[in-house]
Amino acid sequence: MLGMGIKIYGFGIYADNEKLKDLMQSKIAKAPSKPTKEMYQMVIDSDLGMMMRLVIVFSNLTMNMVRKNFDEGLGAAIKKLTGGKNEELTKKIMGEASDDIKLNSGSVIEISRLPGYVLQTKVKGEIVSKVESELLCRAFIYMYLGDDPFDKDAKEKFGASMLSLF
């Protein structure tokens, strides 16, 4: 997420390598020369546990700003996946995260896709939402690994790590 040329947060995408390897090898016999759309789509559609860890860099960030960014990103991802909007589902990712939560530089937001298509959000170590929804889980991963990812470089690095599992 960039705002006025200022880096707002850094993030990482994490998955269990053994489970990711099993997923890739169960569907793809031979490693392609470069990551394919099919590979990314398998991860998006799977129930594989994954986590996005965001570390706040910009000290004047508010929960309202984070919520708005995720609402917009998830809304666009849900529309791409289904052709329609689902604002009620979109707003659940930040759940009960209070606007009073101070996001100082170094604050951590973790959003995890847990087995059973559960999307759990933690802000500064506190669970603020836990939603069971296959569509929400797919849309969230799609924001990072789909056709128009938040960070193309991060998607490419994740793709390279998938290839290394073969």
Rank of each mutant, 00 (worst) to 15 (best):
D147E: 15
K30P: 01
G84Y: 06
C137K: 03
L74S: 09
P149C: 01
R67I: 11
L103C: 05
K37G: 09
K30Y: 10
V123L: 09
G84V: 08
A29R: 13
D100A: 13
G5D: 09
G95F: 02
Q25F: 08
S26D: 11
G10E: 15
M4A: 13
E88V: 14
K124V: 08
S105R: 06
I141R: 04
M143L: 12
L114Y: 06
I93M: 05
F150V: 05
K30S: 12
T82R: 02
E126K: 11
T90Y: 03
V57M: 13
K27I: 08
G12D: 10
D22G: 10
R113Y: 03
M50Q: 09
G125P: 01
L136R: 03
C137F: 02
M39L: 08
N60Q: 10
L23G: 05
D99N: 11
I111F: 00
A154M: 03
L54V: 11
E18L: 14
V55R: 13
I8Y: 02
S112N: 05
K157Y: 00
M1L: 15
M63C: 09
A76N: 08
D148K: 07
Q41P: 02
I44R: 03
K80N: 14
L61C: 07
M51W: 09
K27E: 10
V108I: 06
F166P: 06
E132F: 06
V43G: 04
G75M: 12
K130P: 06
M39V: 05
L23N: 12
